[in-house]
C-alpha cells in the first residue's frame, strides 16, 4: 500500500447550527484544506471563525452537514471510531484531564485508551514530562497545578497517545507569556524531532508565526488564506512602510489615515514623527501621499518595514469583512 502524502484532507466541510428561532448559523462554510505529513499547520482566526468547529468535525465530536474528511488516506467517517487511533487532541475551553488524578495517572489512563502502554511507551511518557518540566509534579493531583502546568499536562496527555496527528486547539490560551513561550519552543522541538503532523489553532498570531510552517486563516466560517507563513510575510513585507516626518505630525493625521489604511499608526517624537502603514493595493501609495501632502507633512525618509503576521492577519480580516 502506498503511503498517502497528505495527513489530512478536508473537503467542502460545512456545519450549520440552527438556533431556537430557526435562524441558521453557518459556523463552517465549505472549508477545504490539506495538511501534509510532518507539517505544522496553523489555524488562525478570530473567535467564532469556525476553528474549533472544524477540529471537532474532524475528530468526530460533531457531525458535519456535508463534506469529506480523509485522515492518512482513510475516509474518517467510514473508519470511525478506529480512525481515532491516529489522532489525539487538546480541546479548548475544557479540562481535558481528571483533576482529581495525578499527572501520571492521567497520562497512563488516556494513553491506555489508545492502547499505548508498553515499557517503551512509559519511558517516552517520562521523556515528555521532563521536556515540559513536569517531572517533579508527576504525582501531584492536576487540580493542585497552576493554570500553565495544567495546560502543559493536557498537551503531554495528548502527545503520550503517540498518534501520527495531534490537534491543539488554542494551546496557549490563558497562559502567561513565559509559559506560552516555553510551550511554543517545546512544540517546535517536538515537531522537528518527531515526524508527527500538528494542527494548531489560535487567535494569537504570535503563536502561529512562531510554531507553524503554513497557515490557514479563517474568518466567518470560511478559509480566506491558505499559504506558507514565510510566503505570506514576504508578500506583506513589500507593503509595510515606515515613513519618517520632519517635525511633529499635524493634528488628527492618524484619524485621517486609519479609515483608509487598517492599522496605520502615527507616533510623535520630539522633533519628528513616524508613520507605520500597510498598503494593500497598488494605488494606495498615491492616496497616502495625497493625505500627507494635504497635511503639510515633510517626508524625511521612507523605508520597508518587517511584516509580522499580526498586521497581515488584521489586513486580511479587514479586507474580508469589507468584501462580505
Amino acid at each position: 500500500m502506498s503511503i498517502p502524502a497528505s495527513a489530512l484532507q478536508v473537503q467542502s466541510l460545512t456545519k450549520v447550527f440552527r438556533g431556537r428561532g430557526g435562524a441558521a448559523v453557518r459556523a463552517v462554510d465549505n472549508v477545504c484544506f490539506d495538511v501534509k505529513r510532518g507539517e505544522v499547520l496553523g489555524l488562525l482566526g478570530p473567535n467564532g471563525a469556525g476553528k474549533t468547529t472544524s477540529i471537532k468535525c474532524i475528530l468526530g465530536l460533531m457531525r458535519p452537514d456535508s463534506g469529506q474528511i480523509t485522515v492518512l488516506g482513510q475516509d474518517a467517517q467510514a473508519a470511525y471510531p478506529r480512525i481515532l487511533g491516529k489522532m489525539s487532541a487538546v480541546l479548548e475551553g475544557s479540562r481535558n484531564l481528571y483533576w482529581r488524578m495525578s499527572v501520571w495517572e492521567n497520562v497512563l489512563f488516556f494513553s491506555s485508551l489508545h492502547g499505548v502502554a508498553s515499557h517503551d511507551d512509559r519511558e517516552y511518557f517520562g521523556y515528555l514530562l521532563k521536556l515540559f518540566s513536569l517531572d517533579e509534579k508527576r504525582h501531584t493531583e492536576v487540580r493542585k497545578l497552576s493554570q500553565g502546568m495544567k495546560q502543559k499536562a493536557s498537551v503531554v496527555c495528548a502527545l503520550a497517545r503517540r498518534t501520527p496527528m495531534v490537534f491543539l486547539d488554542e494551546p496557549t490560551l490563558g497562559l502567561d507569556v513565559e509559559t506560552s513561550l516555553e510551550l511554543r519552543s517545546v512544540l517546535k522541538r517536538l515537531a522537528r524531532e518527531e515526524e508527527r503532523t500538528f494542527v494548531v489553532s489560535s487567535h494569537d498570531m504570535d503563536v502561529i508565526q512562531d510554531v507553524c510552517g503554513r497557515v490557514v486563516i479563517m474568518s466567518s466560517g470560511r478559509v480566506v488564506v491558505d499559504d506558507q507563513v514565510s510566503h505570506l510575510m514576504s508578500l506583506f513585507r513589500t507593503k509595510a512602510y515606515r515613513i519618517k516626518l520632519r517635525g511633529p505630525a499635524s493634528e488628527g493625521l492618524e484619524e485621517r489615515l486609519a479609515p483608509e489604511f487598517a492599522g496605520a499608526r502615527v507616533t510623535d517624537g520630539e522633533a519628528d514623527a513616524e508613520i507605520r502603514v500597510t498598503l494593500s493595493e497598488d494605488g494606495d501609495i498615491y492616496r497616502l501621499m495625497d493625505i500627507l501632502r494635504s497635511a503639510d507633512a515633510v517626508i524625511d525618509e521612507i523605508s520597508h518595514e518587517d511584516a509580522d503576521l499580526e498586521r497581515v492577519y488584521l489586513e486580511i480580516v479587514r479586507e474580508e469583512r469589507a468584501r462580505s
Binding site: 475528530l59 468526530g60 471510531p81 487511533g85 475544557s94 479540562r95 485508551l113 496527555c157
Partner: peptide, 18 residues
C-alpha cells in the same frame, strides 16, 4: 461538564466500550 467526556469520545474503541 468538566470536558473529559470529549476526551473519552476520542478513544479509538468508540465511546460505547468505554
Amino acid at each position: 461538564q468538566t470536558g473529559t467526556l470529549e476526551q473519552l469520545y476520542l478513544a479509538p474503541c468508540g465511546f460505547k466500550w468505554v
